[in-house]
Amino acid sequence: MTWLVTGGAGYIGSHVVQAFIDRGLDVVVIDDLSSGHAEFVPDGVPFVRGSILDTPLVLAALRDHAVTGVVHLAGFKYAGVSVDRPLHTYDQNVTGTVSLLRAMGEAGVTRIVFSSSAAVYGTPDTDVVTERTPTLPESPYGETKLIGEWLLRDQARASADGPAPLRHTSLRYFNVVGSGREDLYDSSPHNLFPLVLDALVAGRTPRINGTDYPTPDGTCVRDYVHVADLAVSHVAAARALAAGRTLEPVYNLGSGDGVSVRQIMTAMAEVTGIDFTPELAPRRPGDPARIVASGELAARDLDWQMRNTLLDMVASAWDARRHTADS
């Protein structure tokens, strides 16, 4: 049983690849390295450099490596930037998924685990998001992730009575942080953890955007989960699909509890030993006060659990950042 991981040279994708390897499962990676790193692909893992928009390339990868399932993480993942680059975002995330599904159909590959996002919810009007919370995305990125879920649903319906019915599930991520290995790190220029750590390493003061939200300390509350915990549930989903188990169409990978930006800053100072007082800045447009999700369904079906504390998340991210600086 071999699984193709699209985007497997990226931050999350490389952790998913490692989780498959740790459990004795064969993987193949396809990545165009637009945001990934070739060195994130372990030695011995076949690596196809290219875009999922190249349907013949994807088809060849599926056939050449006798792939039996796909974990689909490749895509353009920056919600804020997607507002300025909607056509690029739709091309990468929607057209790319169509291309992948087309190649899977031709190759007879019938299992897929899809990387979705909390961005499909927009600004929810509930304290804790569940899979039944209405989806109201507020960015092209969130829209494309929801459309990706629809594409899987519709292709599954269309193929249900054929010789190779598609089986699928989508995992909605919240704030993915930390590192499972010190040589695998988050290099995003937009995510909070690398922004704070890069600032501290450079001797700059990290910034809090908005201190007047209706939260206990006035800063935004988010649901932070460790990337290695996230990766374990991808393997569980893949195994469940391979075993023919019935899965929900979507799962939230959330903690059920929130952490504020100010709490993150406090944890950063404690772990790094760098004493600082964050710079306070106005709110950014579109930032909701609180987004926290229940992971109960994923805990039931996908071995989802919070194995790492906030300090664990920060410490692992800091170790990876220092390793990067030293290498």
Rank of each mutant, 00 (worst) to 15 (best):
L241S: 11
D31W: 07
E182K: 00
P282T: 00
F193P: 10
L230T: 14
G50M: 07
N209G: 07
D287P: 13
N175T: 09
L184E: 06
G256H: 05
R111G: 12
G148T: 10
P46Y: 04
T277R: 04
A60R: 05
V5Y: 00
N191P: 08
R167Y: 07
P282Q: 02
Y121R: 06
G105E: 07
D229K: 04
W318L: 02
N209P: 12
R172K: 09
D217H: 01
V292L: 02
D183S: 04
D275Y: 06
E143Y: 09
V41D: 12
T130S: 05
G218K: 03
V98K: 13
P42G: 06
V128E: 15
G7W: 08
T309A: 02
N308C: 15
V28M: 04
A320Q: 02
Q18Y: 06
I52D: 09
E248P: 11
W318Q: 03
A103M: 08
V129C: 13
Q92I: 13
D319R: 03
A164E: 15
R222T: 14
G244Y: 07
S82K: 13
P165R: 03
V232S: 14
T272F: 04
N308S: 11
D229H: 03
D91Y: 11
W3R: 05
S260D: 08
D303M: 02
A325C: 10
A158H: 09
T126S: 10
Y185D: 08
R132A: 09
V225Q: 15
T205M: 01
E39W: 12
A240H: 01
P56E: 10
V129A: 13
G218V: 07
S188Q: 11
G10N: 13
V129S: 15
A156H: 00
N93C: 11
W318G: 10
G10T: 06
E131L: 04
V232R: 11
L280R: 11
T272I: 02
T277F: 09
Y121S: 11
P214M: 04
A242P: 03
G69P: 03
S117L: 06
E149A: 01
S116G: 12
R204L: 04
G178V: 10
L53D: 15
D229M: 07
H37N: 10
T95H: 14
G254N: 03
G50N: 03
L87I: 15
L4E: 09
G36F: 05
D127T: 12
H72K: 08
Y213I: 09
P249T: 05
R49P: 07
I291D: 09
L136G: 15
Y121G: 02
A107G: 00
D326T: 00
V83A: 15
V176H: 00
N252T: 05
L280H: 13
H323R: 04
E149M: 01
G254K: 00
A281R: 01
V177T: 12
Y90M: 15
A289R: 05
I12H: 09
G178S: 02
V41Y: 06
V250K: 09
A60W: 10
A119M: 12
V271A: 10
I12G: 13
S159M: 02
I274Q: 08
R245L: 14
A237V: 05
N209D: 15
A199D: 10
S34Y: 12
Y11G: 03
